[in-house]
């Protein structure tokens, strides 16, 4: 770990003042950043510890929720309103990491966690455009079973590792940000980036920007939702693919559906094509498979991950069928 100065701000304004200096990183629970610093993938000169800032979960006037960035993952997953109204979010968080890590990790830090691409971590022996812009990508022709099949570029085929963010993408969450340019909100779909020729930039945040909260809009009454994760072992593993979805039926027809995939792209992948294909159609298994096929028609699998479009499609169809029957857990 390279040396750094550590500061604990007294409030958000103090954090923003300290965070506006180049070479500064905000520190949440540390479960990703401390590891990246130990591996010298991240080498901040100053840490501003925002994990002690207020951590409230509040109901908003429109019937949604405002979740402060310092809320711990466990606290969000166990919150009674989240469990009752946003079960896909509780389930997504509980499917991620281990209990110890969920007790440490913050909501803001979860949004900003970095890819688990092994070449990104391998500072000694691998080229990686995300870690060292312009150096090349050893994943594209390497072991790429966990890598992207949608939205990748010649420069980068990494995937975003978060479970929670897949649920937030399906929920049309809004990210509240404060920074040198003042406070603003970013729709969740615009928060993370596709790699293009700048895979070193995971998000659209600018220098000094601090995630302060995540806002959830209310789900219409009668909406069912869940999260399903497929991985190599039953627990404590990153997703091969995952699905977060909400479904509202009118009779046997689909009135509203929102779908996001994890493990398939550089960002949580909102499946707009699949949603469009399902809207106002009968909720049948074949319709679900057809919708998934529409989403993955442009998939560009690599050597080791050609299984992902089929696995993600079957997972989506299974989850939607269970939601339509009303028996998804």
């Amino acid at each position: 770990m390279t040396p750094f100065d550590y500061a604990r701000p007294i409030d958000a304004a103090d954090a923003l003042r300290r965070g506006a200096i180049a070479g500064t990183a905000y520190l949440g629970g540390g479960t990703n950043l401390v590891d990246l610093m130990r591996e010298t993938v991240a080498r901040p000169e100053r840490l501003v510890d925002v994990s002690g800032l207020p951590a409230a979960i509040e109901e908003t006037e429109d019937g949604g929720l405002l979740i402060a960035a310092a809320v711990r993952n466990t606290a969000l997953a166990e919150h009674r309103i989240v469990r009752a109204r946003y079960p896909l979010l509780s389930r997504a968080i509980l499917a991620g990491a281990s209990a110890q890590i969920r007790n440490m990790a913050t909501v803001g830090g979860n949004l900003l966690q970095r890819t688990r691409c092994t070449y990104f971590y391998d500072t000694e022996g691998s080229r990686c455009n995300k870690r060292q812009p312009g150096s090349g990508c050893d994943a594209r022709e390497g072991f790429n079973r966990i890598h992207a099949v949608l939205g990748g570029s010649d420069a980068c085929v990494a995937t975003h590792p978060s479970d929670m963010c897949v649920a937030l993408a399906a929920l049309d969450a809004t990210v509240h940000v404060d920074g040198p340019a003042g406070p603003r909100t970013i729709p969740f779909a615009d928060f993370h980036r596709l790699p293009g020729d700048r895979p070193d930039r995971d998000t659209n945040l600018e220098l000094g920007d601090l995630v302060t909260a995540v806002a959830l809009p209310p789900l219409p009454a009668g909406t069912r939702s869940t999260y399903r994760k497929v991985r190599d072992r039953a627990s404590y593993a990153f997703a091969l693919v995952s699905v977060a979805t909400t479904l509202e039926l009118e009779g046997d027809r689909i009135k509203q559906v929102r779908i996001a995939f994890g493990g398939v792209a550089h960002k949580p992948w909102r499946a707009m094509r699949a949603e469009a294909a399902l809207l106002d159609r009968p909720a049948t298994h074949q319709a679900f498979l057809d919708a998934a096929a529409a989403e993955f028609v442009d998939a560009r699998p690599l050597r080791d991950n050609a299984f992902k479009p089929a696995l993600a499609s079957r997972t989506l169809a299974a989850v939607l069928e269970e939601l339509a029957m009303g028996d998804a857990a």
Binding site: Y6, R8, L27, G29, G30, T31, V34, D35, D49, S51, A99, Q100, I101, N103, M104
Partner: peptide, 15 residues
């Protein structure tokens, strides 16, 4: 009383 991983915790965070 809450379980955490001490390897990913900077001691200074637990003042």
């Amino acid at each position: 009383g809450e379980r955490i991983l001490s390897c990913l915790a900077l001691a200074v965070q637990y003042d």
